[in-house]
Amino acid sequence: MAKTNISKKPVKDEAKILQADLDELEWYIDDFSTFLPLAVCTLNPLGIIVNVNKAFEVLTGYSVLDIVREPLSVVFLEKEAVGKMEEKAKQKGISKTELTAISKNGRKIVTTVSIAARKDKKGVFIGYFVAMTDITELKNLQMNLEGQVARKTKELQEKLADLEKFAKLVVGRELKMIELKNKIKEMEKADKI
C-alpha cells in the first residue's frame, strides 16, 4: 500500500505543475497577443479567420465578434490576390505582398501582408498565420519625397531652359557685335581708300 502512495504522489505533483504551466501559457499568450504591436491573425485551412490579436482590431477597426469566421479577403480591397497569396503560401511556405486593407469604416490602409502556412508535427497543413504592417505613412512619405524630387527637377529644368535662352541671347549679341565690328572695319578701310 505504502508503495502505491509513494508512486502516486509524484504523478499528482507533476499534473499540478503541468496545470500551472498551462495556466501560465494561456496568460502568456493573452498578454503577448495584446501587447504585440504587429497585427496578426490565424486562419483555418479554408482561409477563415479563427483568431485575431488586439493590434489587428485596432488597425482594421473590426472586433473579434465582427471578423472571426469571415474569410481573410473581407479585410482587403484586392479579393483575388488574397486567395492567390494563400495558395502560394501553401505551396512555398510563405508569401508576401502589398495590399490595401479596408477598415470597418471604409478607410483605405496600405499594408504589407505576410502569409505563412502552418503545419503540425506530422507535416499536415493546418492553416495560416497572417501578419499585416501599416505602411500608409511610409507610402505617403515616399510619395511626398517623389513629389518633392519631381518638383525640384522641374524647377531645375525651367532654370536650365532660362539659362539656355540667356546663353542664346548672349551668343546672339556677341555675333551681332562681331558683325558690327567687321562692318566698321570694312567702312574704315573704305574711307582710307
Partner: peptide, 19 residues
C-alpha cells in the same frame, strides 16, 4: 453563438479542421 467566437479552446480546435 458569439461565445463560440471568443473561445480560446474552440479556436485552438477549430483552426485545424479541414471540412
Amino acid at each position: 453563438f458569439a461565445a463560440s467566437k471568443l473561445s480560446f479552446f474552440g479556436q485552438l480546435v477549430m483552426r485545424t479542421f479541414l471540412s
